[in-house]
Write a protein that binds this DNA or RNA. Sequence first.
DNA 1: GTTGAAAGGTGCACGGG
DNA 2: CCCGTGCACCTTTCAAC
Lengths: 158, 158
Amino acid sequence: MPRLEIDAIDQRIVALLTADARRSASEIGRLVSLSPAATKRRIDRLEEVGVIKGYTAVLDHAKLGHALEAFTELRFAPGTQVDDIDRALVDLPELVESFTLAGDPDALVRVRVDDVDHLKRVIDRVRRGRRGGAKIIGTKTLIVLGRTAGPGERGETG
Amino acid sequence: MPRLEIDAIDQRIVALLTADARRSASEIGRLVSLSPAATKRRIDRLEEVGVIKGYTAVLDHAKLGHALEAFTELRFAPGTQVDDIDRALVDLPELVESFTLAGDPDALVRVRVDDVDHLKRVIDRVRRGRRGGAKIIGTKTLIVLGRTAGPGERGETG
DNA sequence: GTTGAAAGGTGCACGGG
DNA sequence: CCCGTGCACCTTTCAAC
């Protein structure tokens, strides 16, 4: 395993790839004053140590027919293990990401759906929450009206 | 402006770029049985019409020193405009994204911080919510214990 | 960290369906 | 409209330093 330290140049490379993951290693090298080969080695190392987990396209989901986004807060029966929560949600195609939380509610589930009717069906599926012994005793769904990206999503954190 | 219709091949291209945004147009072309040039033209068109808004690196924030993630629910005073909410949150480097919601709470703010002390300072800043006339009358912060990516984040939705 | 050369990807004009 | 081809140019990759 390569060294884990992330120096200032690594941070700039990470920021540049966060802003545009399809930039070439040569261009990044130009921007951080390094040769293409040295830049590529740093990118490879950042991937190896797991600082960079991958690269993804940022989509306009509304244009792909998934116009509605929502968060559903979940409350579980006493004794439910946090790991059970994840198991309760696999195989839900509408799931974007799910969070286990400290406090009340116990989990937050983010879903993307076509319309309110679709949302209703998804919430029904979530509420069943059969798998893994997780017993859902309450849900509260919040419909997203608008979303704004922050600096932390654009690589401006360092 | 190019055509807005997204056919089955476009959807596969979007899914492939969502799974790995750094794949070359030639490789994607091989996977969807199209020439490199035709594939590139489709990718360019998907970007032009805004289906693909950009490309970003997926990071392990814990390895970059931002180990703690949290959601803060916000409640606003009556008469607050939803647009005021976004204006109240600009210039918060710890902000990942913010959502305006239908129902109660009025907004959900996602932040990434170094530790609980840092979180305390960020929540204090959010609670002030000076800008744009947004008056925050209550907050509730949920600390993230764990996160799981769903199919909708990996391009498996189509 | 650099250089350099081979392999492969990109960008563009052209022609065909 | 959208596809493929061919070619010049640029990037990536890897050895050697």
